[in-house]
Design a protein around this nucleic acid. Structure first.
Lengths: 193, 193
DNA sequence: TATCCGTGTTGAACATTGTTCAAATAACCG
DNA sequence: CGGTTATTTGAACAATGTTCAACACGGATA
């Protein structure tokens, strides 16, 4: 049942998800879906929970040997996940609850936790800085990476080629680390000159 | 009629928009809405068009005296617009067409145009660089700013206080410019030490 | 004025889809 | 097997995007 839902969202987008389709594919009645998930939001949120879980696992699997490499790895891992599961990630970030019900606390926590994964390596690289300051910085950096990727993959908006995107992301991380004084500023070779 | 639609989206979010509400508020029949806009998507897209137009105007109004100040101004202007019109901006970026109809070309162009506004000042600051390279860089920078702002304002995800967000954005731009070698790297004073 | 024709408006009716709930079915127990 | 509880069912309901035949109005014409 969950698999079916996830498959539909992943393949055809959140908007294509219908309770009746899920029920039919799972070979059960409409009511059973409601018994299991409460309502439509519950169905979606369950899939979203799994998505953020999978994302976190993927990000957590990045090697922690070298902080700088880890930051690059996190960005690359996020890009990989976003590329492979674009619709699932969109469902996580774009879905709005019916009426004005509050967003589930636990999903929120999980997303924040995932976005905090840059904190540890950054703290290693900036040992003299205030921890809360680094926390803010890491969340901001991850938000920036998220923005670059989610807009870059938006096929409706002249998507950036995946390989170019990978390259851009690496450059972005490097440039920012240089700006923080962690690695030396490397001027790109001007082709024009 | 358009005003009503815009008002509903701005006040209660895209999901709260109903054809019947628009018709009633505009004191006309449901059919008239369809005569005017074709379908539901048409209604939304018309508002989105206005939104990206307003955004572009606001961004274009930023002073072009000093390139660095201009970049800060663009980020700040985007933040201001996003703060004042959060739901309208969300409607622009999160709305998906029915079925799989293609996203309107003109809106796409306008968004790209808005996101390209960092190109000119960046080109001034990097006169020796390849223009297409700077174009990619400017789009990436703007995407990053977009990510920081849109996630930062997401009230469901522990929104960052607006003032703190403004400060973070400025720091982000400065750090990135420093990383590009345009302004000197300024190490923040470590509070811990 | 009466008639006709093009144009724009209407809202009842329809299709889709999330939701409910009383009845049917199944499962368990003594 | 009878009784009790739990689970499943799907017809019916409500909300909402969409259609379209009927209607209303305005101007041209006789």
């Amino acid at each position: 049942m969950l698999e079916t839902t996830r498959w539909i969202i992943a393949a055809k987008g959140l908007r294509a998800l219908k309770v009746r389709d899920v029920a039919e594919a799972a070979d059960c009645s409409i009511g059973s879906v409601y018994n299991e998930f409460g309502d439509f939001d519950g169905l979606i949120l369950t899939v979203n929970r799994e998505t953020v879980q999978a994302l976190t696992e993927r990000l957590a699997a990045v090697s922690t040997d070298d902080p700088i490499r880890q930051l690059h790895g996190l960005a690359a891992a996020y890009l990989g996940f976003a590329t492979e599961h674009a619709n699932l990630l969109r469902s996580l970030f774009e879905h709005r609850m019916e009426d004005d019900r509050p967003f589930p606390e636990d999903i929120l926590r999980m997303v924040m936790q995932a976005f905090a994964l840059m904190h540890a390596p950054l703290l290693h690289l900036m040992p003299d800085h205030d921890e809360t300051e680094v926390a803010l910085l890491s969340r901001m950096l991850f938000s920036a990476v998220h923005g670059i990727i989610s807009l870059g993959l938006e096929e409706r908006m002249v998507a950036v080629p995946p390989d170019s995107l990978r390259q851009q992301l690496a450059q972005f991380v490097d440039t920012h680390l240089a700006g923080l004084g962690i690695i030396p500023v490397q001027r790109a070779v001007p082709r024009k000159a």
